[in-house]
Amino acid sequence: MLQTLKHNLKAVYARTYVRVISTFREPEWILTESLIPLLVVFAAATLYRVSGSEQLAGFAVVGGAMMAFWDNVLWLMASQFYWEKESGNLDLYIIAPISKMSILLGMSVGSIINTSVRAVLIVLIATYVLNIRVNVADPLAVLLVFVMTMSALYGLGMLMSSLYMLYGRGAYNLNDILSEPVYLLSGLYFPTIGRFSPFPWVVQFLASLIPLTFGIDGLRRTIILGQTVSEILPHIGVLSILSLVLIPLAWRTLIFMENLGRREGRLSLRWI
């Protein structure tokens, strides 16, 4: 048992290493990939400014940083097994004597490390350029929300990755289509849950099932509005529940999809 755990931890470490080291071999990517969210953040912040609500520009900055994580989840988590399938790596993961969950976990940890660097860069540049007032009263609250958001968000990424394992072009297109509705619903640039949400409660409820929604709201409260742990307990609660549901669900789905793929012979099918 302990031996199996140790073996799987090695796989997690190895997959994390590959993801992190690959990114840092071409560090200019981090900079250029950070520019995209920055452009949209500047546009949103300018809209806030032009319309006389510039004190909310900080909301867009937090959203821009989190946008990097969502894009990462979509393109380098959810569709990762599709890329692995294209190169032949997926077959090798399947026949390796490890839990495939170790691969997903390694990908997640690596992604979080890489994207955090981008997110910090986005926050620093945007905060400086837009002259945002940061008001962190409780760093522990920021850390707690961030960690719980990552756990729930990458739980979703692992679930999507498992679901997409057998699909090629469909998954790619679905990703493309999902990205913007999630930008809208999760509140990347403005709050979509709570008193100021423009959405009816049914939409707010559905939006809160996306881990990003409570995550961004929690981060805004702790980074911009200066709230403390006691004020964001509901956020931590919701994100914990989402993590507890999504990660085991991803695990089960991965096993199910792997077996389905082995039964139907779709594990090795390329770009269909």
């Binding site: 190895a14 590959v18 080291i21 071409e26 032949g88 077959d91 090798l92």
Partner: peptide, 27 residues
């Protein structure tokens, strides 16, 4: 398994690192 039609591995890491990666999958 070695499939001649595939070229598995990760482009941005070295040959040695790729082999190390796969050795870790075998514990």
């Amino acid at each position: 398994l070695v499939s001649g039609a595939d070229t598995p591995g990760y482009g941005l890491i070295t040959v040695r690192e790729n082999l190390w990666f796969y050795s870790m999958l075998y514990g």
